[in-house]
Simulated assay, not measured.
Amino acid sequence: MSKQDLQKSAAALLALHVPGTPVVLPTVWDAWSAKLAVDAGFAALTVGSHPVAESVGKPDGEGMSFDELTARVAQITGAVDVPISVDIESGYGETPQRIIDGLLSVGAVGFNIEDTVHKEGKRIRTAEEHAALVGELRRAADAADVHVVINARTDLFLRQDGDEANRFERAVSRLKLCAEAGADSLYPVGRHDPDTLRRLTSELPLPVNAIALPDQDDPASFGPLGVGRISFGPFLQGALSARAGELLARWR
């Protein structure tokens, strides 16, 4: 993909992030699932680390290498012509330059970056450390002259980190630092009740990514809460797996 094509794709992905009118990025894991989503009419996709790992028999949590991930992303971008964002977990221990170069080389124009460092005992980066990494990734993307869409994620809710009494405030604070460092959207990953999600979207300065259960949640419920982006994490693959299990059980 040429630089001009990458620039156009990145701009198109960014423009889809509208609080109150959320873009739905179905979480895919291979060329088949990507084509399924595009044929259903979706304008952009995200590649999920968990479902990709499951699809190749590796554990989530950077059980794959960055090169293995980008090889799978290349298959997806070769099969569909829509903007692709990639869950790169905590960065696979790679430098920001190598991450940006690797993603652009396979036609991806966005990514999630989380604050759980899998290769270091799954510790959580400090707020300042995570924001600094986001800033380094933004500068690497700027040097490549492509506005790669950065979805900065925190795992504080998912991991129930620290004191629950101030967890919300700590999550908002660290995501605000990521916004200042150059993120484009913010991902307080976890299943939140409507009031919490509304508080998050009202207090955070960028579009907020919510995770949805594709077989259970009401698609119309997220917009009124101010959400700007919806993805499925491992839950689309899980729902399809459950249905496949039902079908196969008929033939045991």
Score class of each variant (00 low, 15 high):
1 M>Y: 10
2 S>D: 15
2 S>C: 08
7 Q>W: 09
10 A>R: 12
12 A>K: 15
13 L>C: 10
17 H>W: 08
18 V>S: 10
19 P>N: 12
20 G>E: 00
23 V>W: 09
25 L>F: 07
25 L>Q: 05
25 L>H: 07
30 D>E: 08
31 A>C: 12
33 S>Y: 03
34 A>D: 09
35 K>M: 11
40 A>K: 13
42 F>Y: 15
42 F>R: 14
47 V>A: 01
54 E>K: 07
55 S>R: 01
56 V>K: 08
61 G>N: 04
64 M>L: 14
66 F>D: 03
67 D>A: 15
69 L>P: 01
70 T>R: 08
70 T>Q: 00
71 A>T: 12
72 R>E: 04
74 A>V: 10
76 I>N: 00
78 G>R: 07
87 D>F: 00
87 D>N: 04
88 I>M: 05
90 S>N: 08
92 Y>S: 08
94 E>L: 03
94 E>Q: 14
95 T>K: 12
96 P>E: 09
102 G>C: 06
109 V>W: 08
109 V>R: 11
111 F>C: 12
112 N>V: 04
114 E>M: 05
115 D>R: 11
117 V>E: 10
117 V>C: 06
118 H>V: 02
121 G>I: 13
125 R>C: 05
126 T>Q: 07
126 T>L: 10
127 A>H: 04
129 E>G: 15
130 H>L: 10
132 A>C: 02
136 E>N: 14
137 L>W: 12
138 R>T: 15
138 R>A: 15
139 R>N: 12
143 A>Y: 02
147 H>M: 13
148 V>R: 03
153 R>W: 05
155 D>E: 14
156 L>D: 07
164 E>Q: 11
168 F>T: 15
169 E>S: 14
170 R>V: 09
172 V>M: 04
175 L>E: 04
175 L>W: 02
176 K>D: 02
180 E>H: 07
182 G>Q: 09
183 A>L: 04
185 S>D: 08
187 Y>C: 11
191 R>S: 09
197 L>Y: 11
198 R>D: 09
201 T>I: 02
206 L>H: 06
207 P>H: 05
208 V>P: 06
209 N>W: 00
211 I>Y: 01
212 A>S: 12
223 G>K: 09
224 P>L: 08
226 G>S: 03
228 G>V: 07
231 S>P: 00
233 G>F: 03
234 P>Q: 01
237 Q>N: 05
237 Q>M: 11
239 A>K: 08
241 S>F: 00
246 E>D: 14
248 L>T: 13
248 L>C: 11
250 R>Y: 03
251 W>K: 14
